[in-house]
Design a protein around this nucleic acid. Structure first.
Lengths: 98, 98
DNA sequence: TCCATAATTCTATAATAATGGAAATATCAA
DNA sequence: TTGATATTTCCATTATTATAGAATTATGGA
């Protein structure tokens, strides 16, 4: 993973509403969640949530597909795994936790 | 790891100068690096770097001790490992990368 | 004590990010 | 084709973060 992408991914998740939204999507799995379902679950105005979903999407940690009137969002597990690998590789050298 | 601490750690690393500084500290290992050595390596003005080191410190991903006139900074591997564990636990469920 | 060095804090400025109402766009159903 | 629903984009406002020169604090040596 490129450093720039790692920074963008870290920034995407370093905000409460976005981390909460992302965690909901991880829980939801392959089914995904509609933007409105996330907004309701997080009690966040649609416009605000839409802004955060756009951030997550442009960082590449989520994607969405239209289904009828809804846009269904999904977590990108591969990119998250790549981020974890990046951190382990570049930021954890010498860790002695377990 | 608490969500708040995870967010603070992610935010600390989601900035180029700070990620670069942190990676230098990881490379340096137990020896650590003086603030001035990091500033020189990154070609960043002392005041700017000091601001970023304070951010890293308040997020708990680095610490420092005085040695003579210098402040020697060290990476906190345990907290980084805890962050990686947090992400794996909460944000990677279902990952199928390898 | 006085000077040089190392780093931080102070301060102002510029840049970026977050918030949410209102308007616009897309889709479906009757 | 009209109306209801889902969501985004537009926009203005507020809040937070980053930058770096100048002043300040801390330390060690002559």
């Amino acid at each position: 993973m490129e450093k720039e992408i790692a920074i963008a991914s870290l920034a995407a998740l370093a905000q409460e509403t976005r981390l909460d939204a992302f965690r909901l999507l991880v829980q939801a799995g392959p089914t995904g969640l509609a933007a409105g379902e996330i907004a309701t679950a997080l009690q966040t105005p649609a416009a605000t949530l839409s802004f955060h979903l756009k951030e997550l999407k442009s960082a590449g940690v989520v994607s969405c597909v239209r289904r009828g009137r809804s846009l269904i969002y999904h977590a990108h597990y591969e990119q998250m795994q790549a981020l974890v690998d990046y951190l382990t590789e570049h930021c954890c050298r010498g860790a002695v936790t377990h």
